[in-house]
């Protein structure tokens, strides 16, 4: 059951006046509201973060309950705090996004600034291929998978993969020459 503004506000006013039962009803109802609010916005992957946020918001509201002005709608007050905690969480998460140390080598091993231009050209050429041979070529030549692995992934036979790669390379070589002539 989701309580409405009038009821929530009455519980809040009673709670502020020292009525623990009313205050507990309020926090119970708000935690249900907040859980729905955060789950809807964070999605199933962050379900446990949603619960943390519910608790964090309840604590924040309790600590700053003195900032509630009884002339204002209670739901507006709650929503503003919930929205702030959500934005704060998303900002913190973005700042915290880092890689585990084991993967640091992959970042620092190669200076990619030089190859970035070349990579851009390759992507442009790849885009001109049909989807199927593009996928095969990317898998074998760019991602470094073996012919057998690629065959298993795409469901093609190994010889079909080899033929496809060969044709795609020829196709690309012709196009790269053509592009070179234009410049």
């Amino acid at each position: 059951m989701i309580a409405d503004e009038t009821e929530l506000r009455a519980w809040m006013m009673a709670g502020m006046a020292g009525d623990a039962t009313a205050y507990r009803r309020l926090l119970d109802a708000l935690s249900r509201h907040l859980r729905a609010f955060y789950s809807r916005r964070l999605g199933p992957a962050l379900r446990s973060d949603a619960e943390d946020l519910v608790q964090e918001t309840l604590i924040a509201m309790h600590a700053r309950r003195g900032t509630y002005d009884s002339a204002q709608p209670l739901t507006a007050w709650v929503y503003a705090i919930a929205r702030y905690k959500l934005i704060d969480f998303l900002r913190r998460k973005r700042l915290r996004q880092t890689l585990p140390l084991e993967e640091a080598g992959a970042i620092f091993a190669a200076d990619e600034s030089e190859s970035a231009g070349a990579r851009h050209d390759v992507e442009k050429l790849l885009a001109t291929l049909p989807a199927r041979s593009r996928a095969v070529l990317r898998s074998v030549k760019l991602d470094g998978l073996s012919v057998a692995e690629t065959a298993a992934q795409t469901g093609m036979s190994e010889s079909a993969v080899k033929v496809s790669v060969h044709r795609a390379m020829k196709n690309l070589a012709a196009k790269a020459d053509g592009a070179g002539d234009e410049n």
């Binding site: 020292g18 009525d19 623990a20 926090l27 935690s31 519910v54 309840l58 604590i59 309790h62």
Partner: peptide, 14 residues
């Protein structure tokens, strides 16, 4: 969260 609600509501200080 339920435990938290109980704990917070026990704090009825003004």
């Amino acid at each position: 969260t339920d435990e938290l609600v109980v704990r917070l509501s026990a704090d009825t200080a003004p």
